[in-house]
Every structure is written in C-alpha cells, then in structure tokens.
C-alpha cells in the first residue's frame, strides 16, 4: 500500500526526490567515468578510431568557433573604445581584447558553442545506437562499447578543444585589431602596445587548461547521456537536450572553478 504524503509535506518530498535523483545520476556518471578509464586499456579498439573523431569533432568544429570569435573580437574592441574614451588611453583596447579573449571569452564561448554542436551530436548518435540496439550488437560481436564509442570521442575532445580555442583566441584578437585600426583610428603599434601591456604567458596556459576541461565535460556528458538513452525517438531528443544543458552548466561551473583555483592572488 502506498502511503499518501500530507499536503504540507509535498514540497519537501519533491525536493527530496530531486536531490535523490541528482545523487543517483551523479553516481551513475561516476560509474560510467570509471568504466571509461578502465576501457583506456583496450588500446587496440580505440586507437584506430581516434584520428577520425579528432577530425569529426575537432577540425569540423573550427569554422563555428572562429565565426563566434571573430564577432566577439569586433564587439570587444568597440565596447572597450566606448568605455575608455575620455578616461583611459585608447591603446588599452588592445589589452582588453587580448586579455578577455584569452582568459574568458575564447574558451567559454567556444565551449558553449561546441556543447551544442559536439555534445548534441554525440548524445544523438549514441542515443540512436542505444535505442536501435546497435550498442548491444557491438557487445555481441565481442567489442567493448565504451572503448569503441566513448574513449575515442572523449580523447578527441580533450585533445582538440585546446586547438580550437587557440584558433578562436587568435581570430578574436585579429578581429579586434582590424576593428581598432579601421573603425577606431588606432594604429597597429598602439593596439600591440596594449596587447602586450598586461600579457602573461600563464594566460595561454590558463586558457588551454579551461579548454581541456571543457573538452572533457562536453564529450563525456554527451556520451553518458547517449548511453543512458531510453524510449525511442523521444528519448533521443531528451538525451540530446540534457547533454547540451548539463554540459553548458558544467562549463560555467568549471569556468568559475578554474578562476578560483588558478587566478586568486
């Protein structure tokens, strides 16, 4: 017999169920992640697939990341000029564009864009394979599906996201420079002077650490949601949405985490 929950207790019961669901999902993700680490030993299965995934998830994603970065660089230069005019020397535009692109907007905007492109793609592809029993078929053919499907995708994400972010940072800065010399009547020397003013080599390291963690988050969450798909086309849609939402949220969480851990004086 099912006990009825008193009206006053229902909100607490709902919170309890949500919390229980969250910790259960966290536990399932932990188990999945450990399984992924174990499957790294199955080198013969994932190595032949790695380059293909690096091309598919990484190289093919460069255009969208560059498109975003270019427009971000333009807007950054114009907003910096708008803010600084009459108060701060205009060569600070270069400093703001460079620092902001490398430390924050290059990795974060690329990560968010790729959570839509890469995370959704992985969740939909693996989700479809799950509901059409293709993952079970892999198992019956003596393949380890985690080594075959998950490991190459996650490693491709970890290796290629930093490459994408380097390109995005460069294009954002170049777009900011072109904007500065054409629309703000700045000279190239002034822009570069500003760019070098606060530059630290650690900035690049920080940007790449963030990019690597975002690559891990987007691909691992996409794979996890794809593998956990249930219930046909509707289930695939649900998994895809969850993959994008969860990986976007985790990107922002990791963004704050790295700032706290690595940027605090």
């Amino acid at each position: 017999m099912t006990a009825r929950t008193a009206t006053w207790a229902r909100p607490f019961a709902a919170v309890g169920r949500s919390a229980g669901g969250f910790f259960a999902a966290f536990g399932r993700f932990g188990t999945f992640f450990v399984e992924m680490l174990r499957s790294l030993r199955d080198v013969g299965t994932w190595v032949p697939l790695l380059v293909g995934q690096m091309r598919h998830l990484g190289v093919d994603s460069i255009p969208i990341a560059l498109f975003l970065a270019a427009f971000t660089g333009i807007v950054l230069a114009l907003q910096a000029s708008y803010t600084f005019t009459g108060a701060v020397p205009l060569y600070f535009v270069g400093a703001l564009v460079g620092k902001t692109m490398i430390l924050e907007l290059g990795p974060v905007l690329s990560g968010l864009a790729l959570s839509g492109r890469v995370g959704a793609n992985i969740a939909a592809e693996l989700g479809t394979m799950r509901v059409s029993e293709q993952i079970d078929a892999l198992e019956t053919l003596a393949y380890n599906p985690v080594a075959y499907l998950v490991v190459p995708r996650v490693l491709a994400g970890i290796l290629m996201f930093p490459v994408i972010v380097i390109f995005a940072n460069a294009i954002g800065i170049v777009a900011g420079w072109i904007t500065a010399i054409n629309l703000l009547q700045m000279s190239t020397d002034d822009f570069i002077r500003g760019l070098r003013l606060f530059y630290e080599p650690f900035d690049i390291t920080f940007s790449l650490i963030k990019a690597t963690s975002f690559g891990l988050v987007v691909t691992a969450v996409g794979c996890f949601e794809g593998f956990a798909t249930k219930g046909g086309a509707e289930g695939v849609g649900r998994s895809t949405t969850r993959a994008v939402v969860i990986s976007s949220m985790l990107i922002l969480v990791f963004d704050a985490f790295w700032a706290v851990v690595l940027l605090q004086p």
Binding site: T128, M129, S132, E133, Q134, D136, A137, L138, E139, T140, L141, A142, N144
Partner: peptide, 18 residues
C-alpha cells in the same frame, strides 16, 4: 568476449551499424 565468439545474435530489427 570469448564466449560471444561462439554465439551469433540476430536482433529483432537487425541492429546493423547504420
């Protein structure tokens, strides 16, 4: 995996890798 080499499985909807 060794056992699965002795067992062929024909899926309901074929489950071919599309």
């Amino acid at each position: 995996y060794e056992l699965r080499r002795r067992v062929g499985y024909v899926f309901q909807f074929a489950a071919l890798f599309d």
